[in-house]
Design a protein around this nucleic acid. Sequence first.
DNA 1: CATGAATGAGATTTCATTCAT
DNA 2: GATGAATGAAATCTCATTCAT
Lengths: 195, 195, 195, 195
Amino acid sequence: MSKKQTILKTAASLFATQGFDATTTQQIAREANVTEPLIYYHFKGKDDLFTQIIKTGFSAYLSRFETLEQSRATPFEQIRKLIELQFDIVEAMPDELRLIASACPARLHDPDGTCAEGVREYQNRHKAYLTRCLAEGIETGEFEPVPVEETASLMVAYINGIIRYKAMNLGDTDNMCRTAVDFCHRSLMNGNIKG
Amino acid sequence: MSKKQTILKTAASLFATQGFDATTTQQIAREANVTEPLIYYHFKGKDDLFTQIIKTGFSAYLSRFETLEQSRATPFEQIRKLIELQFDIVEAMPDELRLIASACPARLHDPDGTCAEGVREYQNRHKAYLTRCLAEGIETGEFEPVPVEETASLMVAYINGIIRYKAMNLGDTDNMCRTAVDFCHRSLMNGNIKG
Amino acid sequence: MSKKQTILKTAASLFATQGFDATTTQQIAREANVTEPLIYYHFKGKDDLFTQIIKTGFSAYLSRFETLEQSRATPFEQIRKLIELQFDIVEAMPDELRLIASACPARLHDPDGTCAEGVREYQNRHKAYLTRCLAEGIETGEFEPVPVEETASLMVAYINGIIRYKAMNLGDTDNMCRTAVDFCHRSLMNGNIKG
Amino acid sequence: MSKKQTILKTAASLFATQGFDATTTQQIAREANVTEPLIYYHFKGKDDLFTQIIKTGFSAYLSRFETLEQSRATPFEQIRKLIELQFDIVEAMPDELRLIASACPARLHDPDGTCAEGVREYQNRHKAYLTRCLAEGIETGEFEPVPVEETASLMVAYINGIIRYKAMNLGDTDNMCRTAVDFCHRSLMNGNIKG
DNA sequence: CATGAATGAGATTTCATTCAT
DNA sequence: GATGAATGAAATCTCATTCAT
């Protein structure tokens, strides 16, 4: 792994556990086994380092999300996949996701805007995706006739709650994926079919 | 408003928008139109200031929550009330909630532990409350026989997602309360009754 | 002397002898018997400290210069006084003048513009003053009919050469004042009168 | 132009506009379109780079000046030529002269001593030259009987003021050469002859 | 001739906090 | 209750310079 990569990884991990401000460049350098100036050789500064990690996290998420968007499956299968994606991604990049979950909220008003932009993008994409799923499912009769817009927004918040819960280790998550899918399944599937 | 109150309000607002570390005592003093030493006259230090704000927020929330716990109603009515409480509380104390939602995530691992404690308490109480509701509802046949523990945990995450969404102004929330209640209603209520 | 004054004096002296960049804030603090942060309490930063010294130097010069402008005397007396002023001011504020002479040339293109502005002001005022003296002297027949504009510009450069020579200790300056006055006297005074 | 030349030119220009210390090797490299290590391939270091530029400037000046020293002409003609030389040299090597005028003052006390040495040399040579001219002119009765030593020193300062004025573009210099020559002419030439 | 990566040394600046009044 | 002045500790960042290739 290149030293640049090591710096990124180390920083991501430290930022995630201690927070951005509580992590010093000296500490990053020490743990990454490089000298401090090297950080400044590869990155414009501590902020830039943070930004790049966040951007990487978001774009890794989005690139996975995009494969979902292209999948052809029944509406509910698509929703299931979206929920499963949350759990997968946290396992694939725990540091990055933990960092996003913990550091972004306080940085939504940052001038640089990386967090705000990422969050907005994340929300818009989810909302559009869910809106499409719901509309389609209702049309085919697979779903109950729920109000599409509002339910999509709600589910964005829900799903965000789940990914945060897992990313920040707020509690046990065994079976949580399955439980979440079932919860939505019962809520959305047309009663006639259920029965 | 007393200067002490002004300091509290100003600090809460700054912590919420910029995060704890990114907010300096100097900035608080300037925006509150007081001098820095006055902050130290009223509070032990920056941490203490933060702690007091957070504690106020959490305890205001908990005191409202406790009235719920004492209410006698059907299981689903209790769940509905819990969801409605989220929306009410954000409207009643928008600054405090925004602060908790934005500044706590980055401080969950702080030595002082105020945030961690508050969040833990919040989760435990919700989980216990929901576990009780679900168990009761299943026993009476009002609810589908869902796995109690797991579903309670999941709903804690869900509800947390909602309150954050609203507290941090992440999007439009008209009808969201109703939509959230309906979403849970469809998911939990026994199909026989529904049908 | 207040600590702020001590800082200003110490910095002026160090900047003048070592140059701006070669002087560290640490050194200023040590020699002024204060702590480094105190410098930042009283001044915005090292640049601001420099700027304030320069501005003080220029404005002290200008305030003295203004008394000249108001004096009523024969044209040549006025020129004599201008030349004498150069020597007086360097003796009154040697550090400031030395600093201006040594540091400003390289800072004429600084974004902050303090030096550029000071130099421009200094030149314009001198030029206007000399233009007036020359025109008047020529009109009264006291002076030879020299080209006014050009000679005024030239004398600005000339006088600047002298003040620099003295401020930077480039050589012996005993009698220099008198010699300079005489040099101009011979050049300007009408030959008929001289003879 | 060889890369070495480009480095020299770029550095000269940057040193002149920003000063020595405020110019970084990185900036030189960037603007010269080379990499930093290349600077170290061609020069011992930043100081050496500066030194070489300055030395080139001074020695180019001196070599021109030496031709003056050898010329046989009347005392005033020699003075005229010295003044004209200032104007010629700035037009021939504007960058170098600007550099000397702007960067040297701040480096007169440098341990390396290039600037100090150059300036001293420049002053001494001028002083000797002017002393000789004045003594000769007085002896022959061409000049007024001015005090030789002092007037020579003064004229060094004077001439230095002029070259700086032009090198640093401090104002319009049309006719300035002629005006300067005339100014000295009137001051030095014997009144009997003038009349 | 040329460079990407790396570094030792050190400078400026910030910040929470305190003291004397 | 209130403040101007002051500070210890430490963080971010810069810079000239070198090494390996």
